[in-house]
């Protein structure tokens, strides 16, 4: 896989159910390009079209309009040989039956292999899933781990993972993110989705935000972070509310400022809460002049802030 080439390319892809485009539309003219060897995240609320997009790549469903290329082939004509080169984790993984995890994985290895000897056990050990229990007795998280093993085990050039972190506890999530980084370092392309950006922002190179079947933005995670909104809270000793207000007045990206005094009369603490959009630096420099007794800067909820931003824009257009 040479860097610079494209692993996934969607051009004008729409998917609607029913006869007419006016029927239920799941995807509305999506354009998307995922560079080979990168980790690409797709974020959006439930029902935004993430699962639909992924199922299109695997030829489980077919587009109503537009063209799709995955690893150089169109999903339908690429057929089994294309899917052999993709590891897929469905969004709603349901594993049933008396078979053990091991024999289920061996079955998937037979229809997508070859799988290197020891690969299944190695991955199972990393994620901490027992392979010798019947799959129907496994918890949701353990089923999800089996799903991850079957997606990763044959080291496919492309991984398509729909909500991979769902049901995983934080330690296993971290292990999963390490597996994604290793896959990227080995030249594999990873296309994953989540409805919570913070779960994948540490690992994704680029992120597409989906809302109601449309891509609202494609950006690097760093770019999103810079435009995101943080909620801040701070407490100052030996500062009057007036002095604090004056000090913060000159910061353009600060809003929703509330200043109040807590504690008793003199010697009390001046508390502020506010929202900072984008760069946090000016705010931090400004408050450094006071004696800080309390400080909290909330991790930005990138997804919410981006969706709000674009939601507001969409409303303004109408």
């Amino acid at each position: 896989m040479t860097t610079g080439s494209t692993a996934i390319e969607l051009a004008g892809v729409s998917k609607w159910y029913g006869r007419l485009p006016s029927g239920h539309s799941a995807l509305d003219s999506i354009d998307l390009s995922v560079e080979a060897g990168s980790v690409f995240g797709m974020i959006g609320p439930n029902g935004a079209g993430k699962t639909t997009t992924m199922r299109l790549l695997l030829d489980i469903i077919r587009p109503s309009a537009g063209s799709i290329r995955v690893l150089g082939s169109e999903p339908k004509s690429g057929g089994p040989e294309l899917r052999r080169r993709i590891g897929y984790l469905p969004g709603e993984l349901r594993l049933e039956g008396r078979v053990t995890g091991r024999s289920l994985l061996q079955h998937y290895a037979r229809i997508s292999g070859p799988v290197a000897p020891g690969a299944i056990d190695g991955l199972a050990e990393r994620l901490g899933v027992e392979l010798d229990r019947p799959v129907r007795t496994l918890s949701k998280g353990n089923k999800q781990k089996l799903g991850l093993v079957q997606a990763f085990m044959h080291r496919p050039p492309l991984l398509v993972l729909d909500e991979p972190t769902s049901g995983l506890d934080p330690l296993v999530q971290r292990e999963f993110l390490a597996m994604v980084r290793e896959a990227r370092d080995a030249g594999q392309t990873v296309f994953l989705s989540s409805h919570i950006l913070s779960e994948i922002q540490q690992v994704a190179d680029s992120v597409a935000i989906l809302r109601a079947g449309r891509i609202v933005t494609v950006s690097s995670v760093e770019g999103l972070r810079q435009s995101a909104v943080r909620r801040v809270r701070a407490g100052f000793a030996d500062a009057t509310p007036g002095a604090v207000e004056v000090a913060l007045a000159g910061i353009p990206n600060l809003s929703d400022l509330v200043v109040k005094v807590s504690g008793r009369a003199a010697g009390g603490v001046t508390d502020i809460t506010a929202t900072v959009g984008g760069d946090i630096d000016a705010f931090v420099k400004a408050i450094a002049a006071f004696t800080i007794v309390d400080l909290a800067i909330e991790e930005p909820d990138l997804e919410e802030s981006v969706l709000k931003m674009y939601g507001a824009e969409a409303r303004a257009e109408r």
């Binding site: 489980i60 089994p80 899917r83 469905p90 349901r94 049933e96 229809i111 997508s112 799903g147």
Partner: peptide
């Protein structure tokens, strides 16, 4: 209906097969 068909068909299997 159980959801298993999706994962099977996502592997190197054709629908005809």
């Amino acid at each position: 209906e159980s959801g298993a068909l999706e994962l099977t068909l996502a592997h190197a299997v054709s629908r005809q097969q």
